[in-house]
Every structure is written in C-alpha cells, then in structure tokens.
Write a protein that binds this DNA or RNA. Sequence first.
DNA 1: CTCAAAATGAGTTGCGTACCTCAAAACGCC
DNA 2: GGCGTTTTGAGGTACGCAACTCATTTTGAG
Lengths: 351, 351
Amino acid sequence: MADTLTTAALTLKDIAREAGVSLATVDRVLHNRPGVRPDTVRRVREAIERNSFQPHVAAAELARGRARRFAFVMPSGPNPFMQQIEAYLGEMSGWLSARRLNVEMVATDVFDASVLAASLEALSGDYDGVAVVALDHPTVRAAINDLVDAGTRVVTLVSDVPSSRRHHYVGIDNIAAGRTAGALVGRLVGGRSGKVAVVAGSQGLRDHAERIFGFNQVMASEFPDLSVLPVLEGRDEDERSEQLLARLLGRHADIVGLYNVGAGTQGVAQALNNKALSEAGRDKVVFVGHDVTALTRRLLLQGVMDAAISQNPGHEARAAVRVLLALARGEPILREQEKIRIDIVMRDNLP
Amino acid sequence: MADTLTTAALTLKDIAREAGVSLATVDRVLHNRPGVRPDTVRRVREAIERNSFQPHVAAAELARGRARRFAFVMPSGPNPFMQQIEAYLGEMSGWLSARRLNVEMVATDVFDASVLAASLEALSGDYDGVAVVALDHPTVRAAINDLVDAGTRVVTLVSDVPSSRRHHYVGIDNIAAGRTAGALVGRLVGGRSGKVAVVAGSQGLRDHAERIFGFNQVMASEFPDLSVLPVLEGRDEDERSEQLLARLLGRHADIVGLYNVGAGTQGVAQALNNKALSEAGRDKVVFVGHDVTALTRRLLLQGVMDAAISQNPGHEARAAVRVLLALARGEPILREQEKIRIDIVMRDNLP
DNA sequence: CTCAAAATGAGTTGCGTACCTCAAAACGCC
DNA sequence: GGCGTTTTGAGGTACGCAACTCATTTTGAG
C-alpha cells in the first residue's frame, strides 16, 4: 500500500567502509582531487553507484562556507519582459539569502557583440555562475567559452547561442513558438481567406527570425487560403510599427490576420484600432502576439488581441537560478522542470 | 552597474548580540518555545526583522537530523494522469534523497469519502506532510482538519477541499479551465452555427462540475450561435462514453463542437471517427479535451483533437513536494512558482 | 634492493543551527 | 525580605561534509 520513493540515508563514512578505503580517499574521488590510483577511484565510484549514494545537500552546502555568486547579464534598455525577469528575481530574495546565494544584475548592451563580450569577460573568475541574454555572434560565443573554461557555469537565457559550450539554455523553442502562432492565426481566422500581416523587430534577431520561419511553415502547409505579406520591420518601436502597419492595412483591404513577432505592441494595436478602418466596416483582424504584459493583458481582455504566445518570465528567472545552482553543486538538472513551455494565453486563461 | 539582490549573511549569534540576549533565548523565540517574557520576544523579533535575518536553510536542515516524511494519497485505479504524477515523483528521487526526504505513495479509493477519510486518519502523527487528491465531502474535510490539528502539513492536489483548513491547494482553477475550453471550441468552430456536445465523467465530481459551469458561461455569453446539448455522463469509461456520444451524434446532424471534460477520451475519439459519420460528408467536429497523455498527444497530431487543456502533472508533483517542504521548514511559499497554470496545448506547442 | 614519489590513512577544524542541560539571575507574591 | 517561580545565560553535542595537514604505507623505477 505504501510505496517509498527514497532510499536509506547513507553517509560518506558508509561509502568509505564499503569501498574499503578511508574517508579522505572518498573525499578525493568525490571532488576529483589528484593522488588516487585509477583502480581505487573505480572501487569508490562503484560503491557510490551501488548504494546510489547522494551527498547530503545541506551538509555539503554548510561545509563549503563561502556563498555562491551568480550574475545575470541583461539588456540595459527599458524592456518590459526583462523587467519582469528582474522583478521575479527580486521576489526570490528571501529564498536566495536563505541559501546564501548572491545574485547580481549586470546591465549591458546585449545587441552590440563586442560590448556584450567585454561585459562577460569582465565577470571571469569572480562568479560561480552567469546567466546571459545572449546575442548569437562569434565574439560572444568566444566570451562564453572563455567563461566556461575558467570554471564558471553559464546558462543562456531567452536567447541562445547553440554553438557555444554554455551548459544550458533556459528559454523556448522559437520555431515552435512561431508555428504555434501560425496555427492560432489560421484557426482563429475561421475559414475566411485573405492576407496575413507580420510585424517583427528585426529579422536579424535570431529569435524573431526563427519565429517567422515557424510561422510561415505552418501558414504555407496548413492554410493555403491565407497568404502571408512581407514582414514589416518595426524595430520593436511603437511609432514605427504603427506607421508601417497602418500603411499596409490601407493598401490591403483583405487583411484578416496579424502576427506581431516582437515588441512594439502598443503601436500595432493603435494601427488596428484606427477609426478609418472600423468605419470602413471591415471584419476584425485576428491578432496574435507575444508575452503577457500589462498592455497585452488589457488588449486580450478588450478583445483587440486574440491570443498571446508567452514564455513565463517568472519560470525563466527561477529556472536559470536553479540550473546554475544545480550545476555548481554538481547535482543533476531536472530537465522536465526547467524546460520552458510555450504558453498559449487567451482571455480566459490569463494567469 | 551591478545590482545585488541579497543581503549580508548574518547568523543567530549576530541576532543575539543585536537583541542583547543569549543564543539560547533567540533559539527559544525562533521555535516558539516557552519561557521567554513577551517583552524579550518582541526585542528578538525586532532584531530579526531589522536585519531581515534568514536562518541558513542548510544548517537548519543538517541540525535537525531526522528525515522528513511526506505521503501522497492518490486514487488506486489506473488513471493515466495520476500515473504521470507518480512517474514524475519517481524522477525526483535523487533530488529527494539528497535532501533526506521520504515520499511514500498511498493508494486508496478517493471516490469513497469514508475510505479516503480512514486512509487520512491512519497517517496521523507519522508524517510531516500529506498531499491528497481529495473528494470534497464533510467526512474528508474533517479528516483533513484532524491532520492539520495534529501538526501535519496538508496540501490538496488536483482536486480541492476549499472548506477545509488545508494549507495549500496545488491545482488549477477548474472554472477558468472550463471557460478556456469554451472559448477554444467557440473560436475554433469558426463562425459556423450548430450544436455543441459535452461529455463528462460525472457532474457530481467537483472539478467536472466546475469545468462545465465555466464552459456554459462562455458559450452562453459569447457564442449565441452555438447551443450546448445536455451533458453526457460517461463515468470516465471509454465504452460508455462512446455509446452515449455515438447516439447523440446520430440524433443531431448539426453538432459542430465537442468538449470532453474528463477521461474516457479513447471512447470519445472512436465515436467521432465512426465511419458512418465521415461517409455522411459531415464537417469535422471541433474537439477539445483535457490533459496531455500518450493518447491525446496522438489525437492532436492526427488532427482528431484540436486542443487539450492541460495541467502540467510534473509541475503539480514538484509543486506539492516543494510546498510541503516549505511549510515544514517554515519558509515562505513562492506563490507564483507553485501556481498551476492552465495550459492550452495544440499540435504545435505539444510539450 | 633502495629510495623517492605516489597513494592512502588518520585526524582535525569549522560551517550554522537544533536541542538539551544546568546554573544563575530576575521576578512577583505574601 | 524571603520564597518559589519564571526567565535568562552559558555551554555542550551533534548533524554530514569540505578542506586541510601530516604521517605512514605502497609502488615502481633504477
């Protein structure tokens, strides 16, 4: 009836006895310290395996004494999504200090490869772990690899550098996110045929490019009645996005759907709400965008926006910390837990 | 540039000095032990506040010695959703044993109030925390309250007993889940008018009843062109669900949408796939159901199912453990982290 | 076989807290 | 003021591990 999921609590002493060596030797093996014969190492490792021994986290943490230092390297501009991540880190402060973890925010221009790389290099040696919103660029990749070589744990956050040797990526699969947006626009348009507009920050940004790729994939294969118009590059700025989109809406009377890939949501919404349009008796344009912010929340409730694709910023913040901590402790990572999901948020499941 | 989120590491000794008392007195205050004058208690509490002191989790954990025992009281039947929860708990076994946490599974008939209550009462005193998939019934409520009074931490899992004094509920808002299902069916039907079928396990189950309530709310207010047919009670059984639904589909040629509230998904899908129907040249029925399992995953990929409302079972399992642990340690709960979201899962964002 | 180098054993200290004991001091009551 | 009671102080031990020292044993090269 009662089925236990955990094993008895062994200690290092038990392992030492099992392996027929002293505590000191087990300690050497456990921490990869030199001066142990390969054969002895094997014996100790086997004893650890055989008993599926887990060092007591609390004891290990207590014994090492020094606190751990983590750095979060984030964009300096006023980006609501990044501000949310910071806010959620702030909410964890009690959790962090109870574990003697120091988390520092480092603001930098993440869009300038050399500036970002310099910021990363500056952290070398001082930190146990670094989370970075990374630009995918050779210079940045090199800086990340340098950090890793220096023994610092590195996770990329939101935006990945797959070619680097970062230990982990905390963020969503942006191609799948684009596909999801495509499926939503297609389905919510509801059988009408017509054109679909796409507004992005820049196609040079890896995440935006990937989202557009996924979006087009789905539109082409599953919704032949909808044709996707060339991407508007709004640079994530409200004014520019509004102007570009307004012009496009004026030119094409049969736009039935809209995918806003990045920020600039305010401008996009404004262009859609334009009086001239509604007076022309047009159908509502299906509007799918990204992220749940105060603005998109309002737009969803008002019905201006139909769905938001979201990556939970709180989850990302906590996952980054947990992954860095697990890496530093040498604990396994709970992949399922740290995986960031693509959330579809509509009015009725607003978090 | 670098902004730290945590404070200096104080110890109990520092607090004792600050408050002008001895370590022993601080300890007494911290653990609500008797024998301290109210005035002294206040002085100590103030010193703790003033320095926002946090006991070192690792040290506390190490010092208390004994392992903690948690029990998960779950339905005994072969329910895939519950099996997933168990599986995810199994995946945590390393994490658990590194923290000297013992988690035991207790299978019982959660649909029989007196049996469930007896199972709960039997746990009294032996466990630090209990997570229970609870039936909302006065007898169960009393059993939960008894556990709480005995000092055991109790969280309800998946299904809540709001009137009890359980410390926390780990699960979704089922009314909102039903609303979300309604919005999805309504939107995905795409402007067609017709009838909508609803299949539930039983309207006597609190979560099913709440989902249906939310579903009807949205259908009535937002989709006047769709009329909801009386609920079919399939008792979460495949065969029964299939028969009931097949009969309904035969009677109403204009069914355009279907909401499956609980399990029995296999049967529902079979009824929809019936040859007789497809040969009649009917439109596809929009099918929205719950939970991502091997089956619903396949149905989504095949296009039989259009969307699944999901509560992440892995998240629920981990959240339950974390909440119990935080409660036992007297740590604050990260509400944002432990909140279970209503996930909308379509083919392209299948996890 | 010899001897230096490598491997190992034995032991210590300290991390911050929980939990306990015992003695001393402060207190309130008559 | 004396008494018993309550409150407080002082101190110790234990938890499991990291990190270190130093002595001792084993090993392999010459």
